[in-house]
Every structure is written in structure tokens, then in C-alpha cells.
Design a binder for these strands. Sequence first.
DNA 1: CTTGACATACATACCGGTTGGTATGCAAAC
DNA 2: GTTTGCATACCAACCGGTATGTATGTCAAG
Lengths: 230, 230
Amino acid sequence: MTKNFFNDRTKKLWHLWDCRPCNKNPESDHIETREKILIAAFEEIYEHGYQAASLSNILKNTEATKGALYHHFKNKKELGYAVLDEVVCESYMDSWIRPLENIDDPITVIKELLTDYAEMATQDDIRRGCPLHNLAQEMSPIDDDFRERISKAYTDWQKAIENAFEQGKKAGNVNPSIDSKSLALFFVATLEGCMGMAKTTQSITTLTCCGEALLERVESLRPKFISSET
Amino acid sequence: MTKNFFNDRTKKLWHLWDCRPCNKNPESDHIETREKILIAAFEEIYEHGYQAASLSNILKNTEATKGALYHHFKNKKELGYAVLDEVVCESYMDSWIRPLENIDDPITVIKELLTDYAEMATQDDIRRGCPLHNLAQEMSPIDDDFRERISKAYTDWQKAIENAFEQGKKAGNVNPSIDSKSLALFFVATLEGCMGMAKTTQSITTLTCCGEALLERVESLRPKFISSET
DNA sequence: CTTGACATACATACCGGTTGGTATGCAAAC
DNA sequence: GTTTGCATACCAACCGGTATGTATGTCAAG
């Protein structure tokens, strides 16, 4: 039951990314209250951004009180960090880092991840965009602690893609002459740009149009020789 | 003198984009007060975002008072719209729309615009990113009036690139088989993504790395036949 | 088996500061 | 004498944060 709670959590809030496994003691009420606040905080920040997120609103959407919030989190910034680390980054681990570990055909896998996303994206997902990107654009220029955490998350993401490209080269599924590191960075930047544009127009057409152009680019990274397998 | 004021304005605030020509009556003090508030408002919004922008801060950075502000602007939203329309969008007109009008070799021109930007960008420009993108990401999900204005700005930008591609096709400088409209959209999305990523890492290296990948992509849009001119 | 000491996990009430916004005053221009 | 272009003073609402109270443990000493 508590397991289901954790499973439902991200599914409900941000259903595109699978939920991280629950690695905390599910018996304790302590955790549940903290989790409830964390969920509501993620929702509020995802909707309004960190600076405009209201602690009162967060508490209104839980049955918790200000005493509970300040018992579990030192202040608003620590709450923001917890949302970033425990909700946003963990989701990225599950959706983009772990699926790229120990695979031989990264181009196919990346294309699957992209098309899966495009198919599952609801209007509301498109409207609110990518949580990591939102925080990055809002907080990077004005808070170095936020910026460093976000920057590390992006670096991890890029590293995962870069490693996948390198492993793909060894398996003969990726053009060995490409610069894995640069293209991993460019891929992440482009993907965020596409999702940001779709967020602005609030149209799935924008997302698919940009997505197809990105797919085409990814496909072009395959080896140049004609594949022996038809 | 007043002409210089307008020239200095955007040069100082957002020096990467040339300033729009002054099309208002420079004699009137009325305009000067309004302009001063508009400048300070742009600065404040550019630095902290629209929602976190403080009217008190804006007034502190001018010699104007709250009475002056509310004399010229109905409320905070109207001030935000004025900043968007009169400062941000006008700058984009000068830096990206007008340079693409009536040209035969769009790929060369676009590459010049990109490299010019990368060379002129200061650390502070990179830190604060693209003003249009910032507003787009912050306001699109929560305010439809903002969203429609920003969406139109992006559409105008894309149209300018699309038209330039089409004219380039006629002149034989662009591969006639490309989808001008889709690629214009993809180009804008990618460019914003690259600038957003550089903003997060706060490193020029990121900007140049992404920029080179983008340049490469743009270059690939030239006609496939070997050019007769060496 | 009970009792006192201490810790955990909140709940309630309150605080000073800041927010966007307004009502009024008033000198200069027309 | 009316309108324009501000300046000053003031406002209720909300902000993040804190001080204090309290119910429910935990645990070792007697």
C-alpha cells in the first residue's frame, strides 16, 4: 500500500517519467508527511516556479501545517533542493540515465525514449514543460547552489548519452568518427529547446515537428557503410 | 542627445542586439520618464523574471515614483507587456528579422549572425540568457496573454527564417528539397536550447560547442551539388 | 511495572517586511 | 479652468520565518 503510494506519486504528478523505487522505510508516518509536503511542493514549483511558489499554497494542498514543514525542512531553499534532488533528478535517473546503461544500440534506444515521450505527453505536460529545464532557466542566473545542482544533473545526463554512444561505437552501431561528448551536449540542448518551444506554442504539432527533426539528426549518427543486415 | 539616449539604452542593457530606431517624439519629457521606467523594468525582469520583479526595485533604480509608474502603465501586467513588446520584441526585429529580409544567401547570413553573437556575448549575457526565452518559459504556462504575444514573436522569427530559406532556394543557395518551415522552427528551438544550456553551465565553452554543432547543421542545408564557384 | 527525563513530530499563533495597487494633492501646461 | 504628469501617503493581502505549546513516543533508572 505504501509501495503503491510511492508508485502513484510520480505517476500522478509527472506521469511521463517512471517513479523511483522507494528506498525509505515505508512504515514510518514521519516519511509520509515529508513525502506529502514534497509532492505538494513539487506541484507548486512545477506550476509557478520556485520563486513564486507559496509555502502557504503548498500547505493548503496537504493537510500539513507550517510546523510540520519547518520540522522537515530548514527553510524554503532546502525544500527546493529536496524537490530538485529527490523528485526531479530521481525521475531523470529512471527515465534517461538508467535506460542508457549497458546497451549496444543507443540510437535505437534514444529514438524509442523520444517517441515514447511524444506519444505519452498530455496537453498539461506540454504546457508545463520540463521541470528540470524550468528550474534551470529560472534559478541558474540568481542562485549558485541551485545552478550547481542542476548543472550536475545535466552533466550526468550528457555523460550517460556519451557513454552510450561510445559503447555503440564499439558494437558497430554508431559512426565511430562522431564526437560523442559534443553531440551528447548538443542533443540535450536541442531536446530542451524543442520542449521549450512546444511549451510556448502549447501545441503537440510543434513537439512532433521538432521531434522528427531531432530523430532525423540522431538517425544520421549511424555508421555510414551499408548495413549487412537488411 | 535624445537619439543617443535611445541608442545607449539597449546597448547598455542588452548590448548584443542593436537598438531599434527611435520612432517617438524625442522632445517630450513624458516619453523620457516612461522610457526610464521601461528600461529599469526590463533590467529587473531580465534579472529576476516577471513574477519576482519588484515594482519598488524598478522605481528605486530610476528617480521615478509609484505615481509616475501608474500614470504611464495601468498595472504590473501592462508594464510587462510593454517591456515585452517595446524592448524585447523590437530588439529581435533588429537582430533577427530585418537582417534576413531580401537576401539570397541565408545560410551565410545566419552563420554570421550566430558567430557575431557568440563573439560578442559577455559572461553576463550568458548568465542571464535570452530575454524572450526567459519570459516564454516563465509565463507561457500561467498567462495566456503573455503566451500569445511571445508565441507570435517566435512565429515572426520563424517566418523570417523560412522566407529567407525560400528565397535562398530560388537563388540556388539552399537545398531545394528541405522543408523550410519545419527547419526554421527546429532552428529557433535548437538555438534557444543551446543558449539555455550555456546559461545553466554559465560557460562560454558550452555555447561555442553547441554553436558549432548548430553551424554544422545549418551548413548542411546548402545544395548537394558541387558549387561551380570554388 | 512504574516513573521521570528527554526527544520527536507536529499544531497554532504571531511577526516584521514586502507586495501590487490606490486615493489624494498639486504644480505646470494648455 | 481643465488636463497632464507626476509626488506622497497609505492600504490590505501576503510573504517566509519563528516562538511556543502539546501530544506521543522512547528509554533507562528505581
